[in-house]
Simulated scan of single mutants.
Amino acid sequence: MTPKTDPVLSLRNFSVSFRSSEGTVPAVADVDLDLYPGELLALVGESGSGKSALTMGMIGLNRGPGTTVGGRATFGDTDLVTATEKDLRAIRGSEIAVVFQDSLSALNPIQKVGAQIVEMLRLHSALGRREARARAVELLDAVGIVDPEGAYRSYPHEFSGGMRQRVMIAMALANDPRVLVADEPTTALDVTIQQQVLRLIKRLQRETGSSVILVTHDLGVVAEVADRVAVMYAGRIVEIGTVDEVVGNPRHPYTRGLLESRTPVHGPRLTRLPAIGGDPIRGAERPDGCAFAPRCSLATPDCDHGIPLLLPADSPPGHLDACLTNRVKVPAHA
């Protein structure tokens, strides 16, 4: 069910497109999405589905002369789409923070970890250097680093990938943001470390009351940490609901395909995992109908004409899907 509170962040008809040699690529198309106070929302889909384009476009981190961002992204009294770069800089790192997937690139390799956290703290607060240092050590301890004093004096290359992600989380939480965007934070980490990082994010979310958008390509990893799940394909949300609804009762064929592609924890070992047939949509061309139809075993000729609405079927009203076999459709380009 949808929470009975006002969202902390609300997207309406949100779109992101990139100009390329092939034409205009619609990376995100007319997305409506709400993030509620204190919830962890997982944004799931294959690479190229539009997850990172949505989150980075929302906070102005992938804008340039070849990028067009449209619709609305309401955060408090601010529309992030029309906000100036000065306004966005004041919000980023303070009220909306990001944990990037490549921590080694995101951290400055020639600056000690502690100095980077102190810089983030002093950029958005009135803390003095001594107070900021004490707060930085406190944050390193809060994210589970065994020797926070030693970590404060260390360089990023001296840490493992999992420890660097903990440092990134400490930096992101430095100014008590209302929203935390974790963009594929467990990429390139082994399974055990992935679980540790995800559980850390969930614990800190509960303790701080922040709202979290967790971007991931793996539906399986969100089962124990997410409150709600939004599944993206070809720049659109094709299913959304609570984690129990989406993982326990998937409605869209694409969601089912993602779940079936997971490595089973129990039962006999498979020699080959099931896979979704075909390839994700690339480039500027988009079909007039359902974008998943060319890969869908349930597709009918009607699926080639008109974009399916994201609406409830016979599930709870907060569980929506955009499959024509469950629903009516709207005309293409409406």
Rank of each mutant, 00 (worst) to 15 (best):
E224K: 09
P26N: 07
R256M: 14
V98T: 12
S20M: 06
L61A: 00
Q196M: 10
S154R: 15
D34Y: 11
R135E: 01
G235H: 01
G38P: 13
R63G: 06
L273Q: 00
E138T: 02
L173K: 05
N62V: 11
D77W: 04
P274N: 02
R286Y: 07
H124F: 00
I169L: 06
T84W: 07
P109C: 02
A230R: 05
R199Y: 13
R251H: 04
G114I: 01
K51H: 09
S105C: 09
G161Y: 02
V246I: 15
I59G: 12
V16L: 08
V113G: 01
K329P: 10
K112D: 09
R129L: 10
A151C: 04
G60C: 13
L200A: 08
T55I: 12
T2Q: 09
Q205S: 05
Y36P: 08
S154A: 15
V231M: 03
T78S: 06
R89H: 14
T55C: 14
R286N: 07
A142S: 14
P37S: 11
Q196C: 03
R199S: 15
P301R: 07
K112L: 04
V212Y: 00
P316G: 13
T255D: 02
A223I: 09
D190I: 03
G235E: 01
L127Y: 09
T263W: 10
R129G: 02
R269G: 11
M171I: 15
T271Q: 11
I59S: 07
S261K: 05
V265S: 14
Q194L: 10
I201Y: 03
Q205C: 06
R133L: 05
S49H: 08
A151P: 03
P177A: 01
